[in-house]
Write a protein that binds this DNA or RNA. Structure first.
Lengths: 188, 188
DNA sequence: ACCTGAACACCGTTCAAGT
DNA sequence: ACCTGAACACCGTTCAAGT
């Protein structure tokens, strides 16, 4: 017996897409070959024709996310001329739209061995963007590096804290003050 | 057959302690009844006399951590009179000693359904401490709340970012500038 | 009271066999 | 080329049986 009865054959991307959806819904741990197979009306055995192992599936899903994420988010930001406006836009995207669901999961799983390399690349690109902002504000390199680190660590921690409803209640309502803090003087 | 041949009987706490060690080493996901049983020279079956299920074991381990964490860290901090010095001490404890290993794992797992309530309580206590610092610096309540959120989100994100060696290289060497940024003016 | 060992379920992985 | 179904391993969970 074989061939899934009339249905078009599955591709690597079908599995990867389903896995990315699962990541968005419940994190990397929620990627179960068994449940994806059920969902795709195939057997677990079929999966192993497309992938060597579960890890390879997760890598493929993350690749999908990275490609779509890279071509989507940053260009729109880079088009904004004024650096403070750009920072505000960046923070607003954190505060309002909770980004896409996969981003929310991954921003918090940067220590997973599979997620780490992918998220490191995305992080570098975003930190570059932050550095550009502070550089354009006329700060010197060491200062720029510190602020970029502070801003990005804040971005990650903010996502993490918001996942807990009890704690999320404490988050500030307006982002203008945040922008002011991040771009402000600092009294050494 | 029964009773583990001469050895003293195991207690709930023996299992919980072993589980906390496993969390420190590899996070909540690393808590495996099978491997703990091997380590304690008992069988998996024995575990179920002490606990109803794996979740209960993890809760017990987190309880252990919370109790020891609460009585240890904060009092020393609260003894410091000058608020800026206190903030500096707080940040230094983040930068230098990577806290205890369990803290590192848990600071990043705040969205786990078992970790969430425990970590929320610890977070609240720490944010209270941060608010006290900024209040003593003479800021008004809204400003205090924003800074405490910024500082704590930074704390969480900092841990997360440092888990990735590639990214950790970008972290600032000196913390004085961080303190300055967090306590500084902000140009609204 | 505390533990063993056998049994089952769930799911990742392999593989011979089908079309 | 693409898939099925049976088999095995790993580990969480249950339980009757031991001391």
């Amino acid at each position: 017996m074989a061939t899934r009865d009339g249905k078009t054959p599955l591709s690597r991307e079908d599995w990867a897409r389903a896995a990315l959806d699962a990541i968005a819904a419940g994190g990397v741990a929620a990627v179960s070959i068994e449940s994806l197979a059920r969902q795709l009306h195939a057997t677990r055995g079929s999966f192993y024709w497309h992938f060597r192992a579960r890890d390879e599936l997760i890598e493929a899903a993350l690749e999908l996310w990275e490609r779509e994420n890279t071509t989507a988010g940053l260009p729109a930001l880079e088009a904004i001329g004024d650096p403070v406006t750009r920072l505000r836009a960046l923070l607003r995207s954190v505060y309002q739209a909770p980004a896409d669901a996969a981003e929310l999961m991954l921003s918090t799983a940067g220590d997973d061995p599979l997620v780490a390399p992918v998220y490191a690349r995305v992080t570098r690109r975003r930190m570059d963007e932050l550095r550009r902002i502070f550089t354009e504000l006329g700060m010197e390199p060491a200062e720029v590096a510190d602020r970029a680190w502070l801003a990005y660590a804040f971005y990650i921690g903010h996502h993490q804290l918001r996942k807990n409803p009890d704690i999320a209640a404490l988050q500030p309502a307006r982002i203008d003050r945040m922008v002011a803090l991040l771009t402000g003087g600092g009294n050494s």
